[in-house]
Design a protein around this nucleic acid. Structure first.
Lengths: 246, 246
DNA sequence: CGGGAGGTTGACTATGTTCAAATGGGGTGG
DNA sequence: CCACCCCATTTGAACATAGTCAACCTCCCG
């Protein structure tokens, strides 16, 4: 059950997230230094990576897989507050305790930096600090977009919003025609519910309803086919353009 | 009606938010330089400061007053995504267009930095970049806490959460006994509704309900008295500690 | 073949919304 | 000074959306 957590050491220069993660702007010398303070570590599907309140001795990046960031109330109500994809950053430099639960939904590979040396390096390496600022601003924008979803959208719009986000992310990788997208849902119905502030029954019902309306098609439980992306985005209630800003 | 927008020039060293805003860590030389690229500007209650989608030629800090950050759907549904208090930062370095509406709810004084020179200065001044990163991480934490409120709390808990946040903020200024706090609400019922993802009628009803339960007392519509802060925090459903982290 | 996790569906209920009307305080003009 | 009006707010009654509780399905795995 408990996987052996120790791992291959990949040179930063060969890392698959090299150009998108917190190290994206580092030069060769800086990468060398990062190499000396990092280690890879894997987590199995379902395993906790960090527990809220625990002290963290590392910060790091998701290299592969998907993890969730969740907050929980005493009575068990749970809200997902972030979805961590490859290149996303985990942990807060300058803070000792974790504020959220981080759980692997897939098998996840993390690139972990020992906290102390990373903080020291960040303090004298603008390339890292600036990239982290940029990434944090992006996350803040995403969180605020999500606040609109949580606060003001109907159950059907919430599902459509989540599906568009996942679809658009995948579309940016495998290019293709604007219509007819397919993708695999990386989340259970319960995780979707926690993301959207719904119950899992409501998630299930709305997915069925979108299927009945022909907005999506299902193949199994997790494979989604979107015959017409603009139709899905209409259902999400978003501005038509997709909201890209300079 | 339209106020003359131009203003007094206050030296950074004398600025009321000097030690908390984006300039908090700057030394005397850096403040001198900031002085040359900034101007003060005032906005009357209700006036827009920035309109979503407009291009911005400045970034800046709230010096006094309260402003809201909101997002709006085509059909008019609106969600507040941030509440800007003195020392909070407005605008995103590196991006030309505004992503949200910023509206003054009070009379607001802004300290505006011309965008281009500010960005250039930030690129070579770690004191500014690091402080902005720290502030952005704090905002991200606040946004995520708010996601839990929006997604998982009942109307009564939402109101109690908002009141505790405002009460705690004011309490950190005027120290006093832990129980028996009073404060002025800086928001209309409608703004509270937009913050909480509710209708203004529900906000009104739940405030009446909290009053009937003795959790709060009202003096007029906007002046709130909290006889027992721990009682209010129980109603908010938060963990008892208040969630401070290193 | 049995067990379990994830998912679907149905019937009923509860919470918050909608629509509508009433209240109340502050300011303006006569 | 007072009548009036405007706006924020409160309150009520009917309604709708999503939640709850429960049964059942279906796939995978041992």
């Amino acid at each position: 059950m408990m996987a052996a957590p120790v791992l291959t050491h990949v040179k930063c220069a060969d890392c698959p997230i090299r150009h998108r993660a917190v190290c994206a702007r580092c030069n060769a010398d800086e990468l060398e230094e990062l190499d000396t303070i990092k280690y890879y570590r894997s987590y199995e599907a379902g395993q906790p990576i960090v527990w809220s309140g625990d002290s963290m001795d590392f910060v790091g990046s998701v290299v592969s897989g998907v993890a969730t960031l969740t907050q929980t109330m005493e009575d068990g109500r749970t809200q997902m507050v972030g979805l961590l994809l490859p290149s996303d950053f985990v942990g807060r430099p300058g803070r000792s305790g974790a504020a959220y639960n981080v759980v692997a939904t897939n098998n996840v590979m993390m690139c972990c930096f020992r906290k102390k040396p990373f903080e020291e390096m960040m303090a004298r390496t603008p390339h890292i600090a600036h990239r982290l600022l940029e990434m944090t601003l992006d996350e803040l924008d995403a969180a605020r977009e999500w606040m609109l979803v949580l606060g003001r959208k109907t159950a059907r719009e919430k599902i459509a919003s989540l599906l568009s986000i996942i679809a658009r992310r995948d579309a940016s990788l495998e290019k293709g025609p604007l219509d007819r997208l397919e993708f695999e849902l990386p989340l259970t119905r319960e995780a979707m519910a926690d993301y959207l502030g719904l119950t899992l029954e409501t998630v299930s019902r709305q997915i069925s309803a979108l299927k009945k309306s022909g907005v999506i098609e299902l193949e199994g439980k997790r494979h989604i086919i979107v015959p017409d992306m603009s139709r899905l985005m209409d259902e999400a209630g978003d501005d038509s353009d997709g909201g890209f800003l300079g």
